[in-house]
């Protein structure tokens, strides 16, 4: 097997098996920041392997395995390669073209998807923020503005000069300390630039619709980022305060607006806030290993054909021969 094919196989593997590995409920939720990192590593690893794999097929300078590499070294004279024959050369050209096409397609789609996501998102957020600047009214808390509405809602508009928006309905239903916890949660989103992580994954999902890895990454990372923000808010304001804020906002919530994923996420958020953090060392180690493996994945995949060929050589062509 060639380096290129090995890398492409790795990319496909991560795209379809990665979600099974990472959406294991408990682990990522215990250390959400590492969970986010693991999903990001998986996504970038898959895209990177796809591009490099295609290029490896396309560029003839990359030896397609130890066999050819050794052959090139030992028969380092012109004509040695010519024995391969015309048919093989024609096949090689087709493979090279296909490799180039794969690399260009993956890179192009990814760049288009992520770029579109970032550009559209920024434009929409800016428009929303501009309108807020005129419509919303100042709040007693710095950094937050009030929107007149009976719907109890708190959200933030990320980007330059990010704003936290609290509706008058939410303001009425939250106590002073609960409001503090909620604002800390939103502040964590803004400072952590969580929207960028989401935008990149959303862009990849737009570029490669139907690929399980990207679709699930968007949903999962969305949930994990909420948990990251919860953790940060809980440090300052206490977990009990955050739980009661969640409960107040959920009981006064708007007429039916279904968002199943968010609802399950809220249940999970409450559950993990209600049990004190314990035993995070194991998931932390497991996820760190995941991240490292995913980051090194393309390199490992590229090495597999060499290792296989080397093993083959050692077994069948002893050096003494």
């Amino acid at each position: 097997m060639s380096v290129g094919l090995s890398l492409l196989a790795y990319a496909v593997l991560v795209c379809f098996l990665g979600p099974l590995l990472l959406s294991g409920r408990g682990t990522t939720r215990l250390v959400p920041r590492l969970g986010v990192l693991a999903w990001q590593a998986a996504a970038l690893s898959a895209v990177g392997a796809g591009v490099i794999g295609g290029l490896a097929l396309a560029v003839p300078a990359v030896p397609h395995g130890v066999n050819e590499f050794l052959a090139a070294c030992t028969h380092a004279f012109p004509g040695g390669a010519a024995t391969a024959g015309g048919a093989a050369a024609a096949g090689g050209a087709a493979v090279r073209m296909a490799g180039l096409a794969v690399a260009a397609a993956v890179l192009g789609r990814a760049a288009w998807g992520v770029g579109t996501s970032l550009v559209i998102g920024r434009r929409q957020r800016r428009r929303h923020a501009d309108a807020l600047r005129i419509v919303a009214q100042p709040s007693p808390r710095p950094g937050a503005v009030v929107l007149q509405s009976d719907v109890a809602l708190v959200y933030c508009v990320p980007g330059r000069g990010g704003q936290v928006v609290v509706t008058s309905g939410a303001l009425r239903s939250l106590s002073e300390s609960e409001l503090g916890a909620v604002l800390a949660h939103e502040g964590a989103h803004l400072r952590g630039r969580h929207h960028l992580a989401l935008a990149v994954l959303r862009g990849l999902n737009r570029a490669f619709p139907g690929v399980p890895l990207f679709g699930q990454a968007v949903a999962e990372v969305g949930r994990l980022l909420e948990m990251c923000a919860d953790d940060i808010a809980a440090i300052r304001h206490g977990r009990a305060t955050l739980i009661s804020a969640l409960s107040r906002l959920s009981t006064t919530s708007a007429p039916a607006m279904s968002l199943a994923a968010a609802a399950t996420a809220v249940e999970e958020r409450v559950r993990r806030l209600s049990v004190p953090p314990a035993g995070r060392a194991r998931p932390r180690t497991a996820l760190t290993v995941c991240v490292v493996l995913l980051a090194a994945g393309p390199l490992i995949a590229a090495g597999v054909p060499f290792a296989a060929d080397l093993a083959h050589h050692l077994l069948h062509c002893p050096p003494s021969a």
């Binding site: 959303r202 969640l246 906002l249 919530s253 279904s258 199943a260 809220v266 249940e267």
Partner: peptide, 20 residues
């Protein structure tokens, strides 16, 4: 693509009940 970050997304009635 707007990617506002909600403290709590809106939920349906039965989902809200499950949450409570």
């Amino acid at each position: 693509d707007l990617t506002l970050m909600h403290f709590l997304a809106q939920v349906s009635e039965e989902e809200a009940a499950a949450m409570r």
